[in-house]
Amino acid sequence: MLGEFDLVEPTSVAEASEVLARHGDAARIYAGGTELILAMKEGLIRYDYLVNVKTIPGLAGVRVNDDGTLRIGGATSHRALERDPLVRERFPVIARMESDVANVRVREVGTLGGNLCFAEPHADPGTLLMLFDATVRIERKGGARTIPLEQLFVGPFETCLEPDEVLTEIVVPPLPVHSGSAYLKFGFLERPSVGVGVAVTTDDGRVREARIAVGCVGPVPRRMREAEAALAGQTAAESRNTLAEAGRIAARASDAITDLHGSADYKEHLVGVLLRRAFEQALASSDGSGAP
């Protein structure tokens, strides 16, 4: 049974931040509540105050700047992203990933900000958005900062946010021209066991840049820069021969943990398999220049 709490409904980020600062550990941001209310029902945590950020005007919504940068409000639901025509057209890989998060009811209610800020390692959006070098805007009363998404995640269920900070926006720059991308996951429980994202930028039949991100396997989603470097500059044919090695490097770097989702060995193996498949898909969609 859910315990009592006071609901606070701020009309600005500054007001939300002020309430959070005033009540410290007794208060918590409430967005969709799909994680928070579950944990509170279980009695794992309790708060005297929940601060409903959905009442802040403008915190939910999607737009695309003239330069093609996608800006997602922190309180935007997974479902809104999945269905948004602009996201589907310009960032189809994000719309597809979103359409595969949880089930439709969780997607209707759960927000992207809540997903990222909960920092449950078995999640999808953080891993994929990292490929785009996404940044997040974090605001509090009297200040704001923008940090790379990669730096948001500190550990399982832990972010670098201060208690009075609100994640207000996720900013996703487009990939360079002649890029293709793919996100693949595998799991047999409710949440994914392994998630791998790959973006490939080609230039005259060569892999100019490969970006690789791995999530779920270790404590936080991460870019795999050593594995990326192994593929950069190769022809499409060469890169296919390097994939196994890139997969081993990424698997080693992923800090795989043995848990209910599988043994570390098993997850490392899956990282290699998904990396290879995601790379092929990304290459094939990078203007066809690397199509098999």
Binding site: T34, L38, R79, A102, R105, V106, E108
Partner: peptide
């Protein structure tokens, strides 16, 4: 929020009434 036995529609959108 896993089984859907509690599914109802809020403004025609499906939600888990057990947790909303």
């Amino acid at each position: 929020q896993v089984c859907g036995a509690c599914t109802v529609l809020l403004d025609d959108r499906p939600v888990s009434a057990c947790t909303v």
